[in-house]
Amino acid sequence: MIYSMTAFARKQLKGDWGTAVWEIRSVNQRYLETYFRLPEQFRGLETKLKETFRQRLERGKIECSLRFEANSASSTSLSMNKELATQLMQNAQWVVDQMGSGEVNPVDILKWPGVMQAPEQDADAVSAELMAGFQTTLNEFVEARAAEGANLAVFIDQRLVSIGEQAAKVRDFMPEVHAWQKARILKKFEDAKVDLDSTRVEQELVLLAQKSDVAEELDRLDSHISEARNVLKKGGAVGRRLDFMMQEFNREANTLGSKAINTDITAAAVECKVLIEQMREQVQNIE
């Protein structure tokens, strides 16, 4: 299986602590680069996130963001330490009684440290839930890359089939080309009213055949087609390998075009170059 470097995944999480949204997106890149946008209280997760990406991905520019909204109800509800408040009131009233004047201010009792308490969220527990949600998001993200990669593999294989068809056409043309070359040489001798020397004719035909022989280029095209299919079948991080192969394909197509001596072969060479360029553009998106 091959993987595209272009993908997106989004996951919303809900808990007693509030809500969170993970988003992961990527585009093609020569190497693996990761960028994070995290709330300050979860900045410590970045190292773990980087390592997780490194274990699952090979290439691509990855942008990962987390939006976090704490549960306002749980964060604003307060609880009272009634035992401490009772002790404070008793002690404060004793002081008032001793002084013979004044009164106990309830607000002052409530302001005393420890009397009113806001529930503290378990940061480790929240982080654990967020990381579990991240793993789910990452799994969906990798699946999206795989689905797009499968589409790219089909696209490339279709172009490989078409290149093979063009190579087969050129092979079919070659006997006709050789016959045309022979007739052309004989016509030249005839027009020049030169006595036909079988050895001379044979030499001319050999020279022309060498200049127009594309068998080697066609064989290499077939070999590249076979190798490209093997690479696609093997899967994994094959983008760089396929990119190199596109250069090899293009080299053979250029040579084929330079040796073309009739419009049919020229058209086949041009079509091959178009197909190769289409593959090369898509290969840039493969991990």
Rank of each mutant, 00 (worst) to 15 (best):
residue 74 S to G: 13
residue 93 Q to N: 12
residue 181 Q to G: 07
residue 67 R to E: 14
residue 11 K to S: 10
residue 213 D to T: 08
residue 124 D to M: 00
residue 235 G to F: 05
residue 185 I to M: 14
residue 168 A to S: 12
residue 52 T to S: 11
residue 34 T to A: 12
residue 125 A to N: 06
residue 102 G to C: 05
residue 186 L to H: 05
residue 147 A to Y: 00
residue 281 E to H: 12
residue 2 I to C: 09
residue 49 L to H: 06
residue 213 D to G: 03
residue 184 R to T: 11
residue 68 F to H: 12
residue 214 V to C: 05
residue 168 A to K: 15
residue 47 T to C: 02
residue 275 L to W: 01
residue 277 E to L: 03
residue 148 E to T: 10
residue 153 A to F: 03
residue 44 G to A: 14
residue 110 L to A: 12
residue 220 R to S: 03
residue 249 F to G: 02
residue 53 F to R: 02
residue 148 E to I: 04
residue 26 S to G: 11
residue 213 D to Q: 06
residue 46 E to T: 07
residue 124 D to S: 09
residue 122 D to T: 09
residue 262 N to K: 05
residue 49 L to R: 04
residue 35 Y to W: 08
residue 166 Q to F: 11
residue 134 F to T: 05
residue 209 A to E: 10
residue 134 F to M: 10
residue 234 K to T: 15
residue 117 Q to N: 13
residue 281 E to V: 10
residue 114 G to N: 01
residue 61 K to H: 13
residue 248 E to A: 06
residue 119 P to N: 13
residue 15 G to W: 10
residue 186 L to E: 15
residue 186 L to F: 02
residue 174 M to F: 08
residue 102 G to D: 08
residue 150 A to C: 03
residue 117 Q to D: 04
residue 210 Q to G: 02
residue 270 V to I: 15
residue 188 K to V: 15
residue 158 Q to M: 12
residue 122 D to M: 05
residue 114 G to H: 06
residue 265 I to H: 03
residue 128 A to N: 09
residue 140 E to I: 00
residue 42 F to E: 02
residue 80 M to L: 14
residue 137 T to I: 01
residue 180 W to V: 06
residue 45 L to D: 02
residue 9 A to Q: 06
residue 8 F to H: 12
residue 41 Q to C: 13
residue 7 A to M: 07
residue 101 S to R: 14
residue 158 Q to L: 13
residue 131 M to E: 12
residue 149 G to K: 03
residue 235 G to I: 06
residue 37 R to G: 01
residue 208 L to G: 01
residue 79 S to F: 01
residue 44 G to I: 07
residue 166 Q to T: 00
residue 188 K to A: 14
residue 57 L to W: 03
residue 10 R to H: 11
residue 91 N to P: 04
residue 152 L to P: 05
residue 256 L to G: 01
residue 30 R to Y: 06
residue 32 L to D: 06
residue 280 R to Y: 09
residue 175 P to F: 07
residue 274 V to S: 08
residue 70 A to D: 08
residue 215 A to M: 06
residue 54 R to F: 04
residue 92 A to L: 14
residue 160 L to A: 08
residue 46 E to I: 10
residue 161 V to Q: 15
residue 102 G to P: 02
residue 57 L to N: 03
residue 163 I to T: 05
residue 158 Q to T: 15
residue 248 E to M: 01
residue 147 A to I: 01
residue 34 T to E: 11
residue 54 R to V: 09
residue 285 N to M: 12
residue 225 I to W: 01
residue 23 E to L: 05
residue 44 G to P: 00
residue 188 K to C: 08
residue 89 M to I: 15
residue 1 M to H: 12
residue 65 S to F: 11
residue 181 Q to R: 14
residue 42 F to W: 12
residue 217 E to D: 10
residue 160 L to S: 07
residue 140 E to L: 06
residue 95 V to D: 07
residue 127 S to N: 09
residue 117 Q to P: 00
residue 108 D to I: 02
residue 235 G to P: 07
residue 74 S to A: 13
residue 29 Q to Y: 13
residue 40 E to F: 05
residue 193 K to S: 14
residue 77 S to F: 10
residue 228 A to S: 15
residue 260 A to Q: 06
residue 114 G to E: 09
residue 225 I to H: 01
residue 167 A to V: 12
residue 95 V to Q: 13
